[in-house]
Nucleic acid binder design. Structure first.
Lengths: 136, 136
DNA sequence: ATAATTGCAAATGCTTTGCTTGTGA
DNA sequence: TCACAAGCAAAGCATTTGCAATTAT
């Protein structure tokens, strides 16, 4: 039985190699937003022969196929997460680097409105909040 | 009589060199968001001896001093603009690369609210809209 | 069978840095 | 004067790529 990501690959005509299967598996078991180095070292625990070049190539391929999504938060290298059905944005804890996902429909609507007022159709957006924890 | 940027430098104790003055001048006459290469070539029209390393150093210095602000839009190298009194966000025309500035107070307020609901004090944010022109 | 994928190392592109000479306050 | 800045070339870092060997379909 194939995983979610493997099914997506088959549907998109993406050839399934052992490396890609493993990258998919490791990513689907990650609930955070690892960068390529981190992903590579998690992968290496299962197969130490997979090269970082393959991880870079796969992560890019999966992004283009809509399987992963890529984030370039301020001051960090690119991070990846498995694409989820529901769109969300991110809040980054500036002290710890922790990333919290959130959804806000009102902001989404306003963005669309702003774009339209300027004469544009909204195709994509990026919203990141940077904050520090309020201590109680 | 000194320019705006030159006054800021004096206030912040940033030493004024010919190179920095020229970089400030070229930037203050730019209404777009040039990257370092572009800035360097605009500068070279006035003084061809200023090195790109100096432009990199100055742009970083000015950013840290709150004189310039830096943007990393999707898929591009870092771009800079002169800091303005009023905060604004950006809409990027995905076909032309043109950048349009906008202000939306409602979105600003909602961002603050979202952060607080998650237990965070909002320190900074990044909002970019990517769109294509609606033809009439 | 054969077109696509891998691993490796070399190349890339942007940005930073060490060092020597030059210069602003 | 003299701490700081500039110019140059070399180094750094994340990412991409050419090529020969390997593999999925």
């Amino acid at each position: 039985m194939s995983s979610d990501i493997e099914n997506k690959c088959i549907n998109k005509g993406v050839r399934l190699t052992d490396q890609r299967k493993l990258i998919a598996k490791v990513m689907s078991e990650s609930s955070d937003h690892p960068d390529v180095d981190e992903l590579h070292s998690r992968i290496n625990k299962f197969d130490s022969k997979i090269s970082i070049a393959t991880v870079y190539r796969t992560v890019k391929l999966f992004e283009e196929a809509g399987i992963f999504s890529k984030h370039d938060f301020k001051g960090n290298k690119s991070r990846y997460e498995q694409m989820s059905e529901e769109h969300h944005d991110h809040l980054i804890d500036v002290s710890t680097g922790e990333i919290i996902e959130f959804v806000n429909e009102d902001i989404e609507k306003l963005q669309k409105k702003v774009a339209e007022k300027l004469g544009y159709k909204l195709i994509d957006h990026r919203l990141e909040l940077y904050g520090s924890k309020i201590k109680k």
